[in-house]
Design a protein around this nucleic acid. Structure first.
Lengths: 308, 308
DNA sequence: TTGAAAGCGCTAACAA
DNA sequence: TTGTTAGCGCTTTCAA
């Protein structure tokens, strides 16, 4: 049997996809599990990319079933269980926290259901593919964009509900520090952590900074607009770097309170994720295990060219 | 017959792609016509995207035959004639000049061979699709990036062999001017035209400008590196904006002689072009008539994240 | 365990 | 013109 397979391979035999799928005569179902609550813009855009891929591949018999959670582990696990029960051919999902992700992956393996990760990676696993940015490198870029000032300090403001997936935040921050380490710039960097948008504390901090001692602020998630709000209130002009083209961020970018936004291209992520799964599982094609998205810098000048 | 078709449509009948292609049992051949000479980086990258699409679609019976010209109208026409003779299902090509393009399109229509344009658009025609940037808007962005200075002037340097397709150059320049018009900025803009890289004249011009009267230089094609070379020679620090991530440009971007490069994403252009043709012609799918690519700003800080 | 045959949905060739 | 049928290459079923 082995020998025969070898010969088959040697002769470069490729099964005919059309005949195969005609004989199988069935539709393939993928599951998609995403958050649906805040950061609406972001996940809505991801979804658009996924639906674009679904539409394109529907002629090839692809169906997608959608599952949404509300950012809580409980809700994530509930939807994950539903997927396991529905037994799709594969699932594309965005990890929430590490524990629930590993649990879900274990169940997928058992089912077995192929799985692909989008947006944030949990290493040590072997999904069909990961689609997303290299979070470390994007943080490194943020470091460059913040620049350097001898006498001033840089603020890293982490505004994140406790339950939120912090793996990405951590990687971005590490990348950020790495820029200064690499270039031997001994910056004074202070980290502020807020579990929720505690306006009062942040505002207090910033209003004390009218002395102009802060060079730049780095917000390693999509909540730069919260900092921008306070900068505006206190009439401060400090360089501000954040992530994601959500509408609130865009507003402040245009108004010159945010200087740079790093775009994760959620639409393309969604599209590529579904595509990779399809090519791997139905077409038996080889697919990159890791699909790093380009790290796009958005400034006031080009934001309008990157929307829609 | 009409009535039957209507009912068929109403019932949402979709032919089975697998059965259809199995019955047809043939490979579909596309032709691709591109320049192969200078700007090597750029067209090589386009080709990579095309080959990526070809590989992905080969399981669906797609074959691509490649034709290259050397940037001369004669060579373009020669290759075009070959394509007409070979009668592929469709051709994807980058227009050279308007006349040869229109001629080729006319012949394609007669053959009939479906055609799609990439990189630069010739309006008034109805290709299956156009894939490329909105040249006008990219020029507009370049205007923004050049900025404004009351007392200084801006240089638009056009370095282009006469035979080169000037439609894009024109659209970019018009977009550039439109930025200043729109914002009611009465800039002093001077245009320099060089049929070939006449180093002497350009150098003379720039070396006379040590008086610091130039605010910025806009090069509406991929030859910003030529200007950068002279800036370096004359030790001038003038804002320089150009197009395309070709290696010579990247070098000067990293060395701080070019400030911004507008990326046309040639690889994605090639990939999308083939994909659109395939989906339209073989899958009978609906395809956007115009696929405008995002206009990406590349600076020293993010160039390494946009390569490969 | 192996082999033969039916059938997936469509097209193209042929017959009426 | 219209209707009928063989066959595309594979999987699955059923028989040997």
């Amino acid at each position: 049997m082995e020998k025969v397979n070898k010969i088959i391979k040697k002769l470069g035999y490729k099964p005919n996809v059309f005949a195969r799928n005609l004989a199988l005569n069935k539709t393939h179902t993928f599951a998609v599990l995403l958050p649906k609550k805040e950061d609406l813009d972001y996940w809505k855009t991801t979804l658009e990319g996924i639906k674009k891929a679904e539409k394109e591949l529907s002629v090839f018999g692809l169906k997608i079933k959608y599952y949404f959670h509300n950012y809580s582990v409980k809700s994530f696990n509930l939807q994950a269980a539903k997927i396991i029960k529905d037994k799709p051919l594969a699932v594309l999902f965005a990890p929430l926290d590490t524990e629930s992700t590993l649990e879900f992956i274990a169940k997928c393996k058992k089912a077995p259901i192929s799985y692909a990760l989008i947006d944030s990676n949990i290493s040590n696993q072997t999904p069909v593919t990961y689609v997303g940015q290299d979070a470390f490198r994007s943080g490194h870029l943020a470091g460059k964009l913040c620049g350097y000032s001898k006498s001033k300090k840089i603020l890293v403001v982490k505004i994140a509900p406790e339950l939120e997936n912090n793996a990405v935040l951590k990687q971005r921050t590490e990348g950020f520090y790495s820029y200064y380490k690499e270039n031997k710039l001994s910056m004074d960097i202070e980290e502020l952590n807020f579990n929720t948008p505690e306006s009062v504390r942040l505002n207090k901090y910033l209003s004390n900074e009218k002395n102009n001692s802060i060079h730049a602020v780095f917000v390693p998630n999509s909540r730069a607009h919260i900092v921008a709000q306070h900068l505006k209130k206190n009439n401060l002009k400090i360089r501000l770097i954040g992530y994601d083209l959500i509408s609130k961020n865009i507003e402040f970018l245009k108004a010159d309170f945010i200087d740079f936004l790093i775009n994760q291209k959620p639409e393309q992520q969604g599209y590529i994720g579904i595509n990779a799964l399809y090519r791997k599982l139905i077409l038996k094609d080889n697919v990159n295990e890791i699909n790093y998205m380009p790290i796009e810098i958005i400034v006031k000048e080009n934001v309008e060219y990157s929307l829609g």
